[in-house]
Amino acid sequence: MKKIRYIIYAAGLLLVLTTAVSLKYGESAVSWAALGNIFNEPDTLPSLVILELRLPRTIAAILAGAALAAAGVILQKLLDNDLASPEILGISGGAGCAGLLLLFFAPGYAAMLNAAAFAGAVIAAALICLIAWKRALSPARLILSGVAISAIFSACGGTLLLFNSDSLSRVMEFSLGGFSGRTMEEIYSSLPFFITAFILTAMLPRKLDILSLGGETALALGVSPGRNRLLAVTAAALAAATAVSLSGLLGFVGLMAPHIAGRLLNSRRADILLLMSVLAGAQLTLTADILSRILFAPRELPCGLLLSAAGALFFLLLLARQPEEV
C-alpha cells in the first residue's frame, strides 16, 4: 500500500513538472523568469503566448487525457475486457459523424464543431445503451450493440466525407486529434460536463469492483447490476464525449492509460486504478502535445498521431513480454 502511495505521488509530481514544461516550450521557448512573471506582467509578449496559447492547450490536454483514461478504466472494468476503450461506446463514431454533418450542412457554423461532436458522442452512447438494455445491461449485449452502432456511425461519417471533400483538412485535423488552437472559452464551456463526469466517476470505484464479480454476486451484495452499470456507462460516455469535443478523436489514451496504471500498481482495485490511470492519461496526452509542438517546429504534428505511434509501440512491447501460453 505504501509503495502504491509513492507511485501515485511520483506520477502527480511528474505531471506538475510536465505542465511547467508545456507552458515554457513550444514554437519559441520562454525563459523560466518570464514564466514566473506571467501574472505580474500579463501584457508582455511571452506572457501573452503563455496565457493565450499554451495555457488553454495545456489544460485541454490534461483534462481530455484524464477523462479518456477514466472512461477507459470504467469500461475495461465494467466489460471485464482489457481491450475495451471509449470507442466501444460509439464515442468516436458518433462524434465524427456529427462533426461531419455539421461541416456538410452548416459549414458556416464550423465553430460549433465541439458542441456537435459532444452531441454526436452522447447520442451514439445513448443509442447503444438503449439497444443493449434488457433487464441488466449485460456486458456481452453492450459490446455487441457497441460494435454495431459504432460501425453504422462510422459508415455514415465516411459517406458524408465522400460528398464533402471541401472540408477535408478540417475533418482530418479533427479525426487525428490535437489541441492546437484551443481557447479558454472552449475549456470553460466544457467544464460543467467534466465536473459532472468527475462526480459520477467518484461514485463508482467500489461498485465497479463489485460488478466485476458478476451480476449475481453484485446483486447479492446489494448492488443492482442494471442501475449501476447504467451509471458507469453514463460516467464513461460523458467523460469521453467531453474529452473528444475538446481534443478531436484521440485514440489509444483510453486503452493505454489503464494498462500502464495496472502494470505500475500491479493491482486492479478500481479506486487506485482510476486515480493512477487519470494521472497516466493526462501525462500521456500532455507529453504528446508538447512533442507535437517542438519535434518539427515550426510545423506542428497532430498530437493524436504521436499517441497512436506510442500506443502501437506500447502494445508491441506488451506482446513481447507476454508469457508464452498455448
Partner: peptide, 20 residues
C-alpha cells in the same frame, strides 16, 4: 462458481462483501 476478482488480495476481496 463465483467469478473471481482480477488482481486482488483476499482481504481486498472480502472488503467488497461489506458494501451493504
Amino acid at each position: 462458481h463465483p467469478r473471481l476478482p482480477a488482481l486482488m488480495t483476499v482481504r481486498e476481496y472480502l472488503s467488497l462483501a461489506r458494501y451493504s
